[in-house]
Design a binder for these strands. Structure first.
Lengths: 132, 132
DNA sequence: CTCCAACCTGGAGCGCGCTCCAGGTCAAGC
DNA sequence: GCTTGACCTGGAGCGCGCTCCAGGTTGGAG
């Protein structure tokens, strides 16, 4: 229920074993519990953090910022405002990222349409060059 | 009209001078014209390529693949099919990327809503942990 | 009790995409 | 003609986020 071997935590989180160890080493993941012999035992809470890190990483947050967030959370409830702001600020940048991605995707589609010679007339400067 | 100094090409393309030189060095940008003294003169065509590279890079295409595309284009018209396929394949990956980004953005928004304590009840496992 | 796969550590190395540097050249304005 | 800022080259270095390695330990199955 709550106590996963490293390989199981890796499987569930989608991070590699090395990445899990790395995240702990740099202080992103708080010190993970150990068996008497020193082997890691990941809790559901750890897994919850990993899900969050996956979310933040997939949306392009740098590790330094994730660590900042994690440290704030460890400091206690009084950092909630700062954490919310950090996430909000990140969300704004993700929105920009999404707009840019959509815009460039549209360009890409147009380029592909050019190759497929669909009847829609395209008169953009870019298409007029020999870049195709 | 058609003949830009390096600084002007950088300004128009949004790439740094170093990046422009780098792109030429690795064979991404074809050999750029020079003045008698050896200084680069970028053409409108070069600028068109840079716009394309910007598009592909912003959508996450690795440089090796961009170079492949550029080389195909230099080989001539008979590579058009392969180029179209390359772009199409990339577009598919961009679509996946957009879906993932949207999904993780939604998670992020939910997390932020949790911080703002809006009345909507959230019962996700992730929220139930101490990751907040 | 033995075996062996999974795990441990510290630290080096890597792949990507630039970015910076030293030391020298070019060219437009005065 | 001189100055000065933009430009040139080859090559080293960097920041990020892992990834791999050697050499040793642990612990569950048989």
């Amino acid at each position: 229920m709550s106590g996963y071997a490293p390989s199981e935590a890796a499987r569930r989180s989608g991070f590699s074993l090395d990445t899990l160890r790395y995240y702990e080493k740099i202080g992103l993941l708080a010190d993970v519990e150990r068996t008497a012999g020193g082997q890691r035992v990941f809790t559901d809470d750890d897994l919850g953090w990993l899900v969050l890190f996956r979310c933040l990483r997939d949306t392009g947050m740098p590790i330094a910022q994730m660590r900042r967030y994690a440290e704030l959370a460890r400091e206690g409830e009084h950092t909630a405002d700062e954490r919310r702001e950090l996430l909000h600020h990140h969300a704004v940048r993700v929105e920009e990222q999404m707009r840019l991605l959509q815009r460039q995707y549209d360009h890409l589609r147009e380029k592909i349409r050019f190759y497929e010679r669909l009847p829609e007339p395209v008169a953009e400067a870019e298409q007029a060059t020999a870049t195709g």
